[in-house]
Design a protein around this nucleic acid. Structure first.
Lengths: 218, 218, 218, 218
DNA sequence: CATGAATGAGGATTCATTCAT
DNA sequence: CATGAATGAATCCTCATTCAT
């Protein structure tokens, strides 16, 4: 009577534990002992399901990236205009909701630092950044067009929103008490809105009505 | 024949080495051996000048905070209007210049993470954030007034600029190749400008002349 | 519905796997996992059929000893003179043939080393050496008599042939490329032949016809 | 008052300890703890003077190779004929003397096995074997010429002598009680002598006097 | 002050062995 | 019998810190 493999559950159990421990202690502080204790498993078992600590980290990074994407997509599915989709993105990243993993933000900050040292993590991290930039760029472009504005400096704008997001994570991790609660999403939305308002109008006579038909679901 | 004490020089030598090593390896990777090698000193000497590794970190954090302030003050000294002073701040934080310490940004990111784990570092970090928030708040308030705008949501705005700055550091450390070179300062200035432009005008009839006398050096 | 016991088959399957793994990785490197992988069995099953790893080693040693004997006996069965029987022994040990287990030589070398550490292995190893020495001694004695030579220094001669054999195994494991291919058997035969030729003649007038009747199968 | 480095002494101390421990326990059994205990040093100190265990092994192999060479050269310095030089070699390798390191033989056997697994060790081992083969080849060639014999099968002969030597080490490690004490050197010398005697004479009329002038020191 | 060796606690990893299924 | 998960002791290695010189 062969035993049923439970590796998938165990792996996610361990990855979850790493996320929680890392959020508090960083990667270096996330000892196998600590991960084992948090997950309620024996230390040796960690290495049965993962070759080494690094492999857990890589899986955590992938998990967080996938989950962030999922959060956006769930919200974007309900959006119909470019502005709503951008707002969905901002909320997915910066607003708290029922689907928030409290540790995920802190863990992501730690991962950003670990990316400096670890080539594998850096690769995933940069892939995530690149994909995020492309997504934001598209969202912004659609908003600008919908607003009848010229499309300029998209790359910088996307980078800026990403920087803002990452920085908001850092402050949330380190200085939560010092910043207004929940400021990030609201301010980001206003920032973008006013930035777009400040852009040059397209020469079109009826920009809004003309552009609206172009809107599509992402 | 008593030697001339060289403690101060040695300490800054060691702190410099920690900054450089941390920028690449993080705090956990900044071993005493690595610091010794980078500073050209013997390992034992590190502990002669600092009680422990943690103390070097604390001094590094203080050094970086002080240096960041210095950079701002040097630039602000040449500014005459509120807008110039804000721009001086943005440039001090986000633009590259002759006084840039390339490692400082990366080291600061690492410190932000270390603050999560280390109470002493967290205290300095939060003090630095608080002081930064107060500074930015004042700069923004002056700008809003100078622009004849109502002063609202200052805390959120200051927090947003700080978040943006911290996040720009993170991207500079981890994803430099993916973002437009030097985007951060320019975009920040435009963002603030347009944000202020979008704020409600004050009911005052002559806002500019009326408010100018209130401008002071920070 | 009782299954047919397959213990014997499983055990030899496992012993075979140990032989193959040991030939490459030594005993310390022959982990249960590796043996399991090589034999295509589950790790847990290894310990069902053997109490512990050591027991597998002991059975491997016995298997190799028995197989080496078998190889000799198959060849000796066709020999009619003392010289032929000695040659059969040399070929069984040192020449390659259809019945060669390529790993067996390497595994035997590993076992020789393990014998230093492990009393059980040492016991079997020494029993094997003793039995080998006795066999070789007998073969050499017969050859000397058949050649009409005085029988002297038999123990040393047997030990020398054994040393040569063991050493040839070592070189075959570690330095195959550096020695002439297949040198060992030929040279051993010549060595013994000339050594015997160099021994003092017996005073007997008709040594060969006189001694032949004494020849027997070993 | 800077401290005087003692790394050289410590390293040889540690290498000595490894040799002694390996002679009994093999490389896998030579734990850092065991080496530390044997050398009287703290475990951590082992890693201060050597990067890892493997590095100690490499240095041990080099040390043994160098020492074996030294033993031969000391003896060869007193030899004047080819036969004496060959005998010097055989004695250096196979006879016990005042300069014998009892553990060295056993350690060398262990190393031969470790060479199978470890590429670095294998490289040194094979270099040692190659150098040994070249040396023996030269010695044998000189002997054959001095004896007025045709020079044939030198490579096989050298390989055979080396195999014999290695095998004698194995038996000395594992089955000392079963073989005649000190048989190896004497038998090797006789073996070579009779082998050479059995070779075909050169067609020269006065082989011995003609060839002697060619003898040189090695 | 300076040097570099020394210590030992702590962490990742391996692996024989056990055990639930 | 068979499977593969689980355990925990053992091992290598790192590194902050101490200390003799």
């Amino acid at each position: 009577m062969p035993r049923k493999p439970n590796t998938a559950q165990r792996r996610s159990q361990i990855v979850d534990a790493l996320r929680q421990v890392m959020a508090v202690s960083g990667y270096a502080g996330a000892t196998i002992q600590a991960i084992a204790a948090k997950s309620g498993l024996a230390p040796g078992l960690i290495h049965y399901h993962f070759h080494d600590k690094h492999e857990i980290l890589v899986e955590l990074v992938e998990t967080l990236v996938a989950y962030a994407r999922l959060r956006y997509e769930r919200r974007a599915a309900e959006a119909t205009t470019a502005a709503e989709r951008l707002r969905a993105y901002i909320d997915a990243r910066l607003a708290f909701g029922d689907d928030a993993q409290p540790d995920a933000v802190a863990a992501w900050v730690m991962i950003g630092v670990e990316a400096v040292r670890d080539a594998d993590v850096r690769a995933i991290y940069q892939r995530a950044v690149a994909s995020e930039l492309a997504l934001v760029r598209g969202l912004l472009k659609a908003c600008l067009r919908a607003a009848g504005k010229r499309v300029r400096a998209l790359d910088a704008l996307a980078a800026g929103l990403l920087a803002y997001t990452e920085g908001a994570f850092v402050l949330a991790s380190n200085a939560r008490a010092l910043v207004p609660r929940g400021f990030a999403a609201t301010l980001a939305a206003e920032w973008i809105e006013r930035y777009i308002a400040g852009e040059t109008d397209l020469p079109r006579s009826k920009p809004r009505s003309a552009r609206r038909p172009r809107e599509r679901r992402a």
